[in-house]
């Protein structure tokens, strides 16, 4: 008997039907966002093992129950890691069912988070997550500390309002800016606008969120459209990791802006309100700042920029952000927002 490992091409309906059937037999539903899938076929062209990637994550693994224990998973993981290496990705993550963790531990992966004994999250660098937490611990301050995580796409008066509130109620605020470069406003600009926008608040420390907070690895559905159940799963995983990050900074609360429109952020907030107390953190949901009866949000600002209503956008952002938006430097970003089909977070 000889098996062959092949790429599953997007047009190969027959192969995809086999992938879905195999995943289903193992109790897994195929993720909506995958960028590569491979499979091992036996002599009779029956699919006996499969695995996929999305960016730097490996996921959707299954091996036919009749063919388990032959090392097929090793072959699939080898192939996927080699492919990731070809596109320059070496720091890899694995999503898998908790009961499969032991197989991945044998393949050089280390578990860093687990969700309710069902889902496990691993990475291939043994000290990376610990180094990340140790790095954060250096900016730990005594007293009451809180965290805020924001994309700030771009930084508005609404963000500023949230930060001010947290800064008033805590000795220290650790402000994480999403470092994943998936937004219309690029990370270096978002970072600059946030750090300038809070520069006068002495007890606010800014951090780059890195790979462990709302990244394409922990929370892919934050950046790409997916179903509610998937979003919720990702949110739980993200918060399980946050539970390990919080002690490094001695956090006692996380502040979030109330979410009236975006489905993803709304779901994330709801899961946070449930999960954070279990981690010993309070979840403070702050009602949005309103101007003229409407909530101030970055989505609104992007919409106004998109529609060319710059003077109205100006009303919703701090002077530091406006200074940037009005500068020649901002031209390519403004152009990208104007040309974007969808400027509002789903």
């Amino acid at each position: 008997m000889s098996d062959t490992l092949e790429t599953i091409n997007s047009w190969d309906k027959r192969a995809w039907a086999q992938v879905d059937a195999l995943l289903e037999r193992e109790g897994i539903r195929r993720d909506g966002n995958l960028d590569y899938t491979c499979g091992i076929f036996d002599d009779d062209r029956r699919l006996v093992a499969t695995g996929s990637t999305f960016r730097n994550t490996l996921r959707c693994f299954a091996v036919d129950s009749a063919r388990q224990g032959e090392g097929l998973l090793n072959e699939v993981v080898s192939h996927l890691t080699a492919r990731e290496a070809e596109r320059g990705l070496f720091h890899l993550f694995v999503y898998t069912k908790a009961k499969s963790v032991k197989f991945f531990k044998d393949l050089g992966f280390y578990e860093i988070a687990r969700v309710e004994d069902t889902l496990s999250f691993l990475e291939n660098r043994p000290r990376s997550f610990k180094n990340y937490c140790d790095g954060l611990a250096k900016s730990r301050r005594p007293g009451r500390s809180a965290a805020i995580v924001m994309n700030a796409n771009p930084f508005t008066l609404g963000h500023r309002y949230l930060v001010e509130r947290a800064a008033r109620e805590n000795d220290t605020v650790h402000l994480f800016v999403l470092s994943e470069d998936e937004s219309l406003v690029p990370f270096d600009v978002r970072w600059k606008l946030v750090t300038r926008g809070v520069a006068d608040l002495e007890n606010v420390i800014c951090h780059k969120s890195g790979p462990y907070i709302i990244s394409a690895a922990t929370f892919p559905s934050y950046f790409l459209r997916d179903e509610a159940a998937v979003i919720e799963g990702h949110a739980r995983l993200d918060l399980a990791l946050f539970g390990s990050i919080a002690p490094a900074l001695g956090l006692s609360a996380r502040y979030v802006g109330e979410e009236p429109t975006s489905q993803v952020t709304g779901l994330y907030n709801r899961v946070m309100a449930q999960e954070l107390p279990k981690l010993g953190l309070s979840c403070v949901i702050v009602p949005r700042l309103e101007t003229g009866g409407a909530a101030v949000s970055a989505s609104t600002v992007r919409r106004l920029i998109h529609d060319g209503r710059m003077e109205e956008a100006r009303e919703l952002v701090p002077a530091t952000t406006w200074e940037y938006l009005a500068s020649p430097e901002a031209a390519p970003v403004l152009e990208a927002i104007r040309r974007a089909g969808e400027v509002v977070h789903y």
């Binding site: 090793n74 072959e75 993981v77 080898s78 890691t81 290496a85 320059g88 070496f90």
Partner: peptide
């Protein structure tokens, strides 16, 4: 730059250098 060689199959080793 980072590079990889080998596999995770039995009797092999996967080596990554960075």
């Amino acid at each position: 730059r980072s590079a990889m060689a080998g596999t995770l199959e039995s009797s092999d080793a996967q080596v990554t250098v960075e």
